[in-house]
Design a protein around this nucleic acid. Structure first.
Lengths: 203, 203
DNA sequence: CAACTTATTGAACGGTTATTCAATAAATTT
DNA sequence: AAATTTATTGAATAACCGTTCAATAAGTTG
């Protein structure tokens, strides 16, 4: 394998240190020096692996979005049939611990870059379209099996995701767990209603 | 009035310069020196009005949120009856030019602070609850007049707003106007459906 | 006009930023 | 074992950061 392996490991190490520091101190105020200190290495070593800060930030965004993607993909659980998958998925997406799987602070700082950096915009675009397309496929399958009635799966997918994103956007401003859960419950109900699914767990 | 007037004007001037520079260069990379330069004054003068950068950022967030609030309040137009107000409002909220009234780049950078700074969280919380409460009142009024059937106006208000916020979150990743408008149209349709309003303009 | 308060300037401060570079240590290849 | 490539260090750079302070200009009040 050679050193290219060590190189890859170090790179990942650095990006993860960046991510963890950014969670605590904020994305924009995390400097190369701070990342280096947290790894007990010299700042110049970071520059050796990432030619510039910009490149490092790009790597962080990729890391963030991959985490984001994986969380969704893990939620597509194995079940007897597609409607059970859909049911469990929606239930999970609108659950409180779903929110805790991910640090939204860093994520939204990255998202803000969408408005200034076309490449970041492209990355976010791609990930979100991927997620929505996958969900749409599931809806299509459920419809084909007659489990739900959904003739416009792309549109429905988009609506569910918009509802989801908007709900998390809001509940993170709320103080209490109770309040957050209440809002999630209302949104989940609407989601089930849109899909024409009854909320009586059968798993 | 005295100089307190000039002081207030200068302060506003500085915050607006901050905002405009942040739109172009990003919130976090807008320094006091840059703001000063854009106003053709000395950095120390800014410190004279705002004791620290932190105080300045707080003022910017207040400015941002006030703009945000005002955009909504302007959309509550005078109409013959409350259902016309509601109809026009929803139509406006989900329109393309609604999105252009506001710079979301700076806004989302500020929003990201919600996750680290309790005071910022509190500010966002307050504004959003205010908006949702006002919309809820309108729903209640419409229901009272029998224009719509809405027995849980608070919940309905929250759902419409979540749908709205989530929709804008997503469409700002999209490249074309056509795409954006299509998504807005779908979300608007769902909003009208939730409210039990028919989409046949009568204004 | 004199006394006083505020507005504004401009220089200076120590600290941090990203980045460069030469030197050395370690690992890999020949 | 020698040669070469890569990893890592540590010092140095210039630019910028927020902030302080004394000096001066301008405006307000007595």
């Amino acid at each position: 394998m050679g050193l290219s392996n060590i190189s890859a490991i170090r790179k990942k190490e650095i990006v993860e240190a960046f991510y963890n520091t950014a969670i605590k101190e904020g994305l924009e105020s995390t400097s190369i020096a701070k990342i280096a200190k947290s790894l007990d290495i010299q700042p110049s070593l970071i520059i050796h692996y990432f030619k510039s800060k910009e490149e490092l930030v790009t790597a962080l965004i990729d890391h963030c979005l991959e985490l984001y993607l994986r969380i969704f993909e893990k939620a597509y659980t194995h079940r007897r049939n597609s409607s059970d998958v859909l049911y469990a998925l929606v239930q999970r997406m609108f659950s409180k611990d779903w929110n805790d799987l991910f640090d939204d602070g860093v994520y939204y700082s990255a998202y803000a870059l969408v408005y200034r950096e076309p490449q970041v915009k492209e990355k976010f675009n791609k990930i979100h379209k991927t997620l929505r397309a996958k969900f749409s496929s599931l809806l299509k399958e459920c419809d084909a099996f007659g489990h739900i009635n959904c003739k416009e799966p792309d549109q429905t997918s988009n609506l569910i995701f918009s509802l989801l994103d908007g709900t998390y956007y809001f509940i993170n401003m709320l103080d209490t767990d109770t309040e957050q859960k209440e809002h999630l419950k209302q949104s989940e109900e609407l989601a089930f209603k849109i899909l024409g699914l009854h909320k009586n767990p059968e798993n």
